[in-house]
């Protein structure tokens, strides 16, 4: 449908968000690229210009000088810290995604198969924490996981352990934090495909002598695949660049690239290096992001409250 006489309104409705995103979303990446090629300096802002008009002695001759350097990227790959942080981020995000899938799938399944009157309440209960502050939900785990926290109190009360477990400020706490905060992102897309699934297919399979568990693997799982993929990507992509969780729950050995970028920027004030880290992270996540696009319209439309 195209309104015949509404071309002016149409042009405005396209142009305004287009220009906004071009200025505040696209242009910043070009600046990140520019600064990642600049040399760091002790100045404000803390980097040297990439281009400079050099003015000759007679004030006439001008030349454009170009000071690009690949040194920041060289540092990035030569220094083991950054490579380790990248690998470790991918590993942590991947493991957390698998754990979230293992916890999230049965929940999505149970909600999709629940009677109608419960289904909406259960779905609401999944969406609610997603609205509640991310920072607060991460913070809540500090009180649970610390040495004299609730988990250790409970485990000692039951008599499972004698000495408190050290969980807070380790990678385990980071896994718990990621799984906990991103679980709704896993459940919702899987739920969206499961709820549309025709239950009679399973019944037909079982009537034909298929065992329920086999029917589950042969019918439910393949049909739920788009939801599983979308859910995994929605957990994995943001988890790789996560800052708050490793910062509050992780220890000094927990290496995650989002945290490294933050430290590089705020503590070391090395803007060019931070920009280089951001670009490498972006390139790394580009493939999963594009892949997610294919599933996005099918799944995101179900996530709205």
């Amino acid at each position: 449908m195209q309104p015949k006489s509404g071309t002016k309104g149409r042009r405005i409705a396209i142009a305004i968000p287009y220009v906004w995103l071009a200025v505040f979303f696209l242009a910043p990446f070009l600046i990140v690229l520019k600064i990642s090629l600049s040399e760091p300096a002790v100045s404000i802002p803390p980097y040297l210009p990439l281009f400079e008009w050099t003015v000759g002695a007679d004030n006439e001759e001008r030349a454009l000088s170009f000071f690009a350097t690949a040194a920041n990227f060289a540092t990035l790959f030569a220094d083991g810290l950054y490579a380790n942080a990248l690998v470790s981020s991918l590993k942590i995000a991947a493991i957390a995604t698998i754990v979230a899938l293992i916890i999230g799938f049965p929940m999505a399944y149970a909600i999709a198969r629940a009677p109608d009157r419960f289904r909406h309440i259960l779905l609401f209960l999944v969406i609610l924490p997603f609205w509640t502050s991310f920072l607060i939900r991460v913070y809540a785990w500090i009180g649970i996981l610390k040495t004299e926290g609730f988990l250790n109190l409970a485990l000692r009360g039951v008599g499972v352990i004698d000495s408190p477990l050290t969980i807070l400020y380790t990678d385990v706490a980071v896994y718990i934090g990621i799984v906990y905060t991103y679980l709704p992102f896993m459940i919702l897309p899987i739920y969206a495909v499961l709820v549309r699934m025709d239950q009679s297919m399973i019944e037909a399979a079982i009537d034909l002598g298929c065992r329920p568990i086999r029917a589950f693997w042969l019918i439910t799982v393949p049909l739920a695949r788009p939801g599983i993929i979308a859910g995994c990507l929605l957990v994995f992509i943001p988890a790789v660049g996560e800052f708050v969780i490793p910062d509050l729950l992780g220890g000094s050995e927990t290496l995650m690239i989002g945290h490294t970028l933050w430290v590089e920027f705020f503590n070391n004030r090395d803007w060019p290096l931070a920009s280089a880290v951001a670009l490498v992270l972006l390139v790394l996540l580009l493939a999963p992001m594009v892949y997610l696009r294919r599933y996005q319209l099918r799944t995101w439309s179900f996530e709205k409250p």
């Binding site: 968000p17 287009y18 995103l21 071009a22 505040f24 979303f25 696209l26 242009a27 910043p28 990446f29 600046i31 990140v32 600064i35 990507l233 929605l234 992509i237 943001p238 790789v240 660049g241 996560e242 800052f243 989002g258 970028l261 933050w262 920027f265 803007w271 931070a274 920009s275 951001a278 992270l281 972006l282 996540l285 992001m289 997610l292 696009r293 996005q296 995101w300």
Partner: peptide, 20 residues
């Protein structure tokens, strides 16, 4: 451009806007 901010890691969005 409309869909990318949904999955862009916050540290990247934050850093790039600051540099702008």
């Amino acid at each position: 451009m409309v869909s990318a901010p949904l999955v862009m890691p916050e540290v990247i969005t934050g850093l790039s806007l600051l540099l702008l």
